[in-house]
Amino acid sequence: MRRAPEDPERLLRWYPSAWRDRYGGELVALLEDELDGARPTVGLRMSLALAGTRQRARSGGLTGDGGDPELRVRTGALVVLTGWTLVVFGGAAFAKVSEHFGDAQPASAQSLARGAFAAVVVLAVSGDLLVLAGAALALPATLRFLRSGGWSSVRRRVLWAAVAVVGLVAATFGLAKWAHQLTVHQRNGGDLAYSVAFLAWGVLAAVTLGLVTAAGTAIARRVSLERPVLRAEGALATVVGALATALTVATGLWWAGMARGAPWFLAGTRPGTHPSPVTVPLVFVEGCLVLASAVALYGAVRTARSVSAI
């Protein structure tokens, strides 16, 4: 049985709607000319999906140097915010991996790891403060946006984020209460039920961070910022991107310091042994932080390149 020819307009669903309004009719006419009644091939579908996604990224200010520099700065700053959210997630995992590391080392081998850990803390606090400063700068414009009827366009995302935050707070209290009843050994993998609950809490924390970031991004994309505020946001985003990269380097130095001075701490083996310092949790943490800093750095570079044009 022959299938009905596919509507060429459906092939353009990857493109942003504003682009479709301008070029969609022409591209559909071209597709009709090229296909001449035949069904589109998989290659053509993939090519259009890729081209549409690229156009979406360009139209949103995520790639390319054309278009509105204010949009590029705003999108770059939001990319940095997304990267910093990943840093927070990776940082929380790093805090767990490095918990009580100072007790496990001989004092003579502590300098690099301790210095790197102190740098991680300073960089993390500095980045968090700058993100809060950015949010405070955007607060007046955000309130104007919400008062002028913008609430309905972001309500769903904000409510989802709020529900997730409430759920995370409740789960955190529950988990902390449970943890107080357990020994150190039970808290660190000795109790299967607690380990599963801790993993579930980590997933919930990641989902909550994602939902809060999505809500913040949805608001930030719609808020109209004055140029001086946008310039300040761009400058803050550039610094936060640099801090994210420095933080990732510092966690790597901590890892190197521990690998040199007390590899048994990283592997969880008996003191004095020399196991491999490359462990699955640390690879996960560093992978997450490298990804986070790459995202933040990309946003920071785009912001820095565009902020002078506004």
Partner: peptide, 16 residues
């Protein structure tokens, strides 16, 4: 030039 590539280039050329 596939349709996606062609219209991507047309878009950029018109923008410029």
């Amino acid at each position: 030039l596939g349709p996606g590539t062609l219209y991507g280039a047309i878009t950029r050329l018109e923008e410029r």
